[in-house]
C-alpha cells in the first residue's frame, strides 16, 4: 500500500509541477489543483497508513492518528477556496488582456508600436 500511495503522490505532484510551468493560465490552475491533491494525500500519510483503525482510543485494536485528518480537512477547505479564487482571477486576466497567457497579452507583440511597450515598462 505504501508503494502505491507514494507513486500516486509522486505522479500527482510531478504532473502538477509540469503543468504549473506552462505559459497559459488554464494548465497552471489545473497544475495547482493537482499539487494540492498530492499535498493533501501526503499530509494524510503523515499519520501513518493503516486500515481499519479508528481515531478513538479503545474502540478498535489499532487506532489511527486523528490530527492529520483534521489538518487535511483544513487544507482541503483552504485549497478549494484558493482554487476558486485563482479561477476567477484567470478569467479576469483573459477578459482584460484577451489572452490567457500568464504574462498578459502576448499575441500582438510583433505589430505592437514602440511607444506602447515603453509605456508598459515604465508603469
Amino acid at each position: 500500500m505504501e508503494l502505491v500511495f507514494a507513486l500516486v503522490i509522486g505522479a500527482l505532484t510531478s504532473s502538477g509541477v509540469y503543468l504549473l510551468l506552462r505559459a497559459r493560465t488554464f494548465p497552471v490552475v489545473v497544475g495547482l489543483t493537482l499539487i494540492s491533491y498530492g499535498v493533501n494525500l501526503f499530509l494524510f500519510s503523515s499519520g501513518r497508513l493503516a486500515t481499519g483503525g479508528q481515531p478513538i482510543l479503545g474502540s478498535t485494536e489499532s487506532y489511527s492518528d486523528p490530527l492529520p485528518q483534521a489538518l487535511v480537512l483544513t487544507a482541503i477547505v483552504i485549497g478549494f477556496a484558493m482554487t476558486a479564487f485563482v479561477v476567477v482571477l484567470s478569467l479576469r486576466n483573459l477578459a482584460d488582456n484577451e489572452d490567457d497567457h500568464v504574462d498578459g497579452r502576448q499575441g500582438e507583440r510583433p505589430e505592437k508600436p514602440e511607444q506602447k511597450s515603453e509605456e508598459e515598462r515604465s508603469q
Binding site: L43, S46, V86, D96
Partner: peptide, 27 residues
C-alpha cells in the same frame, strides 16, 4: 491583473510547500 496573478500563484505554491514541510515535521 498580471502581477496579481503571479502573486496568487506563487503564494499558492508556497502554501503547498508549507503543508509538505508541516507534514514531514509532524510525521
Amino acid at each position: 491583473t498580471v502581477p496579481g496573478l503571479h502573486y496568487v500563484v506563487l503564494n499558492l505554491v508556497g502554501s503547498a510547500v508549507f503543508l509538505i514541510s508541516v507534514g514531514m515535521i509532524y510525521s
